[in-house]
Amino acid sequence: MAKKRIATVWLCGCSGCHMSFLDLDEKLIDLAALADIVASPVADVKEIPECDIGLVEGAIANEENLHVLQELRAKAKVLVSLGDCAGFGCIPMLRNQFKNEEVLDRAYVLAESNALGSVPDQEVPALLPKVRPIHEYVEVDAWIPGCPPSPEAIWQAVSALLTGKPAEEPVLSYD
């Protein structure tokens, strides 16, 4: 049986879900036997290749997030929402209490640590009006909630998708 191909992306999140993924520890060896990681935040991949499983960490906050999400959706046979930001909006969603101009001002003008003094208009992707979970933009096939999801929950879902064996009853956690 040919090895499956997994791509992971890091959108508007803290990378905690990817940390939890790495916390699979020795199971990463089992994973390597079953699949190749063809794209991830630590691999310098310019264009997401065709893949069997796409894992999405993070909510959709700006145009780039949305572009990457749509690209992965087009390339992945199965799209999995990884973590609370992708599935529920979670912490990035706090931004929705404010206007975008207020948020940008806070980050680029009012922040004491920022020497720039003005909101950049190049190279930084434009914010979308509201932060939203990924399934409000594209079709999602499975959700692994958790902040971050436990390595066990990730392994349960990923190994089921790789082997085709049904997963056990998932243990949900929102925190």
Binding site: S81, D84, G87, F88, C90, I91, M93, L94, P133, H135, V140, W143, I144, P145, C147, P170, L172, S173, Y174, D175
Partner: peptide, 25 residues
């Protein structure tokens, strides 16, 4: 937003979500 709520882990809404298998809205 569960992750920074002091009631997380002991919340009846969270438990209702788990009970009803809510993994997204």
């Amino acid at each position: 937003i569960c992750p920074f709520c002091p009631r997380s882990g002991n919340c009846e809404l969270q438990n209702a979500g788990y009970e009803c298998n809510v993994d997204h809205l």
